[in-house]
Lab assay of single mutants.
Amino acid sequence: MEVRTIKVFTTVDNINLHTQVVDMSMTYGQQFGPTYLDGADVTKIKPHNSHEGKTFYVLPNDDTLRVEAFEYYHTTDPSFLGRYMSALNHTKKWKYPQVNGLTSIKWADNNCYLATALLTLQQIELKFNPPALQDAYYRARAGEAANFCALILAYCNKTVGELGDVRETMSYLFQHANLDSCKRVLNVVCKTCGQQQTTLKGVEAVMYMGTLSYEQFKKGVQIPCTCGKQATKYLVQQESPFVMMSAPPAQYELKHGTFTCASEYTGNYQCGHYKHITSKETLYCIDGALLTKSSEYKGPITDVFYKENSYTTTIK
């Protein structure tokens, strides 16, 4: 009895394709271990004539594949690729409408935090270190965002349907971005203890939790000093293409032309909904596939993004 075979390709990165001759009487799992086709788990399936010449994702289970996976995804987590594939199996079914010149995501599976993050990423200057993220990001900007969303979920250790947080998501993504040249110098002034300067680099240099107003941050924000008295913390120097200011959701007025974009969060910790506000020729609110415009805006804002380049204080 002759062994019926077909020729397929296996890959971990969709760049390096490895030619395989597979036995049609055995499952993919018996031949390769966990195997995925377009995100779908085909591990328990036997090869079919229609699979001839198709590319299958496999887990990096030998040295060659491990090197290829690390170079593309910059992670050695053995569960990463499987999590990416199972997320992709959902995100490829989502709709990605162009809204006001940006790629958004039609609401499904509690994905409003991903839509808000995706919209924000198209408006701030950011370059990702893992080629996987950078490639998928370019495709997302062009309207094909399924891979990018699935990668975000995998890097953030999230599953489809789980509630997510924009600030946490951005923080994970910033860790995989090139923020080497970003720098922030802060000064804390206390009447009792004097003053202390701190220099922050990388992710810490672009994120701040405690106030939404970048102007206020430049002037000074009140913080408790270690001595128990009130101290003032203010920005001395900022070198970065953008800054992200966050605070627990509270009524906040966004003035046209003073910011790049913002995240609105309605609801409580267990259950809520994100919308995205962007400042173009007027203010726009993007909620999944829905767009509304207004000249002014007041609502429960939790993150505001500002364009920056270089700032030095005039406070002496």
Rank of each mutant, 00 (worst) to 15 (best):
A40D: 14
V188P: 00
V99W: 12
T226P: 13
K218V: 03
N111C: 04
N89M: 15
K316M: 15
Y155P: 01
G164M: 02
G202A: 06
E125I: 04
A250D: 08
V42H: 09
G220S: 04
V188K: 07
R141S: 09
T198W: 11
D41A: 13
E296L: 11
K275F: 08
Y234F: 06
V203F: 09
A40K: 12
N16S: 10
Y137I: 08
E71S: 08
T211K: 02
I286E: 01
H256P: 15
I15H: 04
V22K: 04
V3C: 14
S240F: 02
Q122Y: 04
D165G: 13
C225T: 00
I315F: 15
T278G: 10
Q251I: 15
N110S: 07
T10P: 10
L186K: 07
L283G: 00
L153S: 08
K127H: 11
S310I: 12
A289G: 11
A231L: 02
Y57W: 12
A69E: 08
I286A: 01
Q196N: 12
Y96Q: 00
L121Q: 03
M244I: 06
T232Y: 08
E296A: 13
L133S: 02
P241M: 01
Y265M: 04
M209G: 08
T116L: 06
A205K: 00
E68Q: 09
G210L: 01
G267H: 15
V42S: 08
P131E: 14
N61Y: 15
C156L: 08
H276L: 08
Y297R: 03
M244E: 02
H273E: 00
M26Y: 08
M170T: 03
E239L: 07
G101Q: 07
V160F: 03
N129K: 14
F217H: 01
G39W: 06
A69D: 09
T64H: 11
V8I: 12
A132T: 07
W107I: 06
G143L: 01
M245Q: 06
D62T: 11
Y72G: 06
E2R: 12
C285H: 12
V3G: 13
M245E: 00
D38H: 10
G228N: 02
A145S: 04
S240A: 02
K298G: 06
A140P: 05
E2Y: 10
C112N: 00
F305P: 01
P300F: 14
